[in-house]
Design a protein around this nucleic acid. Structure first.
Lengths: 209, 209
DNA sequence: GTCTATACACTGATAGAC
DNA sequence: GTCTATCAGTGTATAGAC
């Protein structure tokens, strides 16, 4: 799959739309901005995408879609539970590092329009291994029963894992300022360190001693 | 302090502005919406606050200010480190539960206008015990030296703590949908559980065994 | 202080020429 | 397919009467 993206007006528009929507959100973006970035006039946006709302949905969908395969792939691999956590954390942080604005963009949008999630999930049923969550729950339960990890509700463990991964990116401006005196390079190093730090933090917490 | 808020036009406007700005952000809010909510006409908004930007800053400032005393108070109290974590988590979750939109609002705004943070912090220098962070660092170091907790960089511990607290609120729409099948009551219970769960998770992770 | 009326720029979207 | 011209609506902000 992953075919070469043809460079035509339609894809140029989408690319420009992505950049601006993801940085500025729905309300903060104007069709004029997008047209300008794409180097064309406003009419063409409507010619190809009919409305702002419609164009936005395409962008949101693609942003969302990008993060699905990581979960699927990691969870389906046949490795130990602790290794899974390690791989997941590493892949996920790499991914956000390359697209640092996406998590904030998705969160913001889902707060603006919570109904949009249902629609979003419907649209990607095919991509999501619909039993992925089920599998994670089973695996956690198995590790608990085997006495490898302490009893823990899967909902909390999953939430903790994702929170530890994503939060430093969505809260970067304030954390960087308050904790790192606004030193950009120091914060980048901090984010890299978290690959090992988060894994250590989680496993330390749940591993039966 | 904490004087009775007089009910006059000025405070009515601010209250209405808070509600709408916090839910919809700067770009998503119109002066007409605020005037409508306050039950007055648009002109009065400008009479009292001169501009949208200005009114917004007042709202952002108050939202930000609300969360400062929790840190100060908890950190200055003379109790053990683990107790501090416990008190902090409990107070903080209670606070966000009562103002669930504020963290998302602040994060969104600081991403929209990162320069705003510096200004914000300047404005509240008086409120922030400017050595609070220093004190936390010292205390963590002390616990490490005493062999009570494992070595951990304060930056990571602080980030982890805040991430675990705030993330379930800012990501509520998506977590509630995916993990809890959109059951509101179940999610409220989940949030309550986190008071104990987060404390356990953190202490488990750092406590030397 | 509070209102109505209005200025003026900009928004998303459409019509129609090429 | 791509452009220019333009629409109707809405945005913030101000002027001026009371």
């Amino acid at each position: 799959m992953a075919m070469e993206q043809e460079i035509n007006t339609e894809s140029t528009i989408l690319k420009a739309a992505k950049e601006i929507f993801i940085k500025k959100g729905f309300d903060g973006t104007t069709m004029k901005d997008i047209a300008g970035k794409a180097g064309i006039n406003k009419s063409l946006l409507h010619y190809y995408y009919r409305s702002k709302e419609n164009l936005f949905r395409k962008v949101l969908g693609e942003a969302f879609k990008q993060f699905i395969p990581v979960v699927n792939k990691t969870m389906m691999t046949d490795i130990s539970f602790f290794e899974k956590i390690e791989i997941f954390v590493e892949t996920y942080i790499d991914m956000i590092t390359e697209n640092p604005y996406i998590p904030g963009f998705v969160l913001q949008e889902l707060n603006r329009n919570p109904k949009g999630i249902t629609e979003l999930i419907e649209n990607f049923r095919g991509y999501i291994k619909n039993n992925a969550l089920e599998l994670i729950n089973e695996q956690i339960q198995k590790e608990v029963n085997a006495g490898i990890i302490n009893p823990v509700k899967p909902q909390h463990l999953i939430t903790n894992l994702i929170a530890l991964l994503i939060f430093p990116f969505v809260a970067r401006p304030i954390l960087q300022t308050i904790i790192f005196n606004n030193d950009v390079e120091l914060y980048n190093m901090f984010l890299k360190e978290r690959k090992k730090e988060v894994v250590k933090f989680i496993i330390n917490s749940i591993k039966k001693k």
